[in-house]
Design a protein around this nucleic acid. Sequence first.
RNA 1: GCGCUCGUAGCUCAGUGGAUAGAGCAUCGGUCUUCGGAACCGAGUGUCGGGGGUUCGAUCCCCUCCGGGCGCACCA
Length: 589
Amino acid sequence: MTSLKEQLTTIVADAFASCGYDRKYGVVQTSDRPDLSQFQCNGALAAARQYSTNPRQIAQAVVAKLSTLDLLQNVTIAGAGFINLILNDEFLVAHIRKLAADERYNCAPVAQPRKVIVDYGGANIAKPLHVGHMRPAIIGESLKRLTRFLGHDVLGDVHWGDWGLPMGMIISELTMRHPDWPYFDPNHNGPYPAESPINVTELEELYPTASQHTREDPAALEAARQATFALQNGHPGYFALWRHFLDVSITELKRDYADLNVEFDLWLGESDTRDRIAPLIERLQREGYAHASQGALIVDVAEPEDSKEMPPMLLIKSDGAVLYGTTDLATIEQRVQELGAELILYVVDKRQSNHFQQVFRAAYKTGVAPATVGLEHIAFGTINGKDGKPFKTRAGGVMKLRSLIEMAVDKAQERLAEVEGAKNYPDAEKAEIARLVGMATLKYADLMNHRTIDYIFDLDRFSSFEGRTGPYLLYTMARSKSILRKATELGYAFGPINAPTNQGERALLLKLAELPDVLALAFAERAPNHLCEYAYTLATTFNRFYHDHHILSEPDQTQQASWLALADTTVALLALVLDLLGIQTPERM
RNA sequence: GCGCUCGUAGCUCAGUGGAUAGAGCAUCGGUCUUCGGAACCGAGUGUCGGGGGUUCGAUCCCCUCCGGGCGCACCA
């Protein structure tokens, strides 16, 4: 099953072809002028250039062919040569009946599924998630769900930051604090303690302190570098200690992601490529891709046609340690060889675009990634405060993600307390509703903006129940579900859906039919904001319909059954789209 | 300096080589003995940063200027 727009494009393309014009001019789109038509084709205007003729003349020939079709109620030419299409209601409703009966709502799975890896965590070991981790988690989760729903074979990978300088910083900090620990005793024989010597609270305190030391004291930085090198090269004590960091930290980080309703299929990190690094580097040297420069080992990635300076990618620093570019390269190799990756999406801050350009070029150049493998940096902007600068706590520090979620949930709780109908809900349910509303607040606000822009965090605006917000959508669904519940209790019949009797109903049918096109667009652009836009317009279209038709008191049972099915289908579509955004919905509010 | 990116209504943001550039908020006005009013309906505001070019047609593509943000091998 294809979308209405696709079906119409085929039909109009056929008409162009049978008039002797190129099929490509038959592209149909949703009308820009809903007052004039439901769909439009602008192809005659473009074709006029190629065929050196009058666009209206082309349009007339095409329209003559289309006018004989039953599925179109009206075909007209407007302006310079726009072809306006209005569907026959019977055809429209038949399409919607199929959609309502189809568990995929007319969204056919892609013809050629690809193996897709979405790399979107970016969490660092030993550091709790902070506001900066929210966008990659939310955007990546949405892209993963969307891509999977479209029928691709998708894996999400958190890709921990667990093998770079920060690890060395913590180790060298501990070396100073606890020189007596066995991990630091070069003469230590036998196993190291099974229990971690530090807990998560201590670990999370350790990193900022160590980081500050390395900034202030060159000797501390040097010590951290040496520790990093030693860890990466098999220092047994450091490695054992590092393992404790992972154990302690990952439990905590997984909990944070679970709170966000973000789940990964692969919980791998930079370190999981450690056995590949030496052989990879050896090959790159042997094959002449890598060479020494200023004490480091590099891969040149500059191209003659570059308009800007393109620095080489560093494989090994002059101190001997590898960098994240190196592990990124090894990770691509691993994903291609072990997972059969055909497309890798990196949902990472846009400030790293240079880095990914280097890594991708190096990967293709060295054969780590065959040319058939797609490597894409899905860049996103920063979350700013009302001052336009990166979002901070009142004290000016980095805000933990947990604090941010807490703020949003508290806000939802406040509003929920004002609602009459919700006053008698059990406390546990109230808390759960507040949590869901709070999460929807954050996620919808984040995803509704195009991912590449920086946006201003304004909780009061995001948490409003009016306007384009998560809470508005959840409320719309809750109201509708309430009606559907009552109808079920009363034993009312659902469906079949009847042909629309007015513009409001017709608009809803047309809106429902847009789903496949919206999903395709969102995927093509890797842009979940199209899903947000659709969810909102579907909700408002439904609310208008809902306002105009009193379903439960409708005396005509056929009409009522049709409306109930329509409401049911709308709620299902909204739930699907919100699910693709990673937003969970309560049964009632 | 070089490069990337953004500049659209009072504010926050969508959007597209084509018809009259859209939403939300805010403002003003209305519906209404609520299938859940946390709803719905209506109204106004734009040199789409400036200028030039390509095109039948540019807010969109190209050039240039102005302004903001970001990035420019041994952090991630």
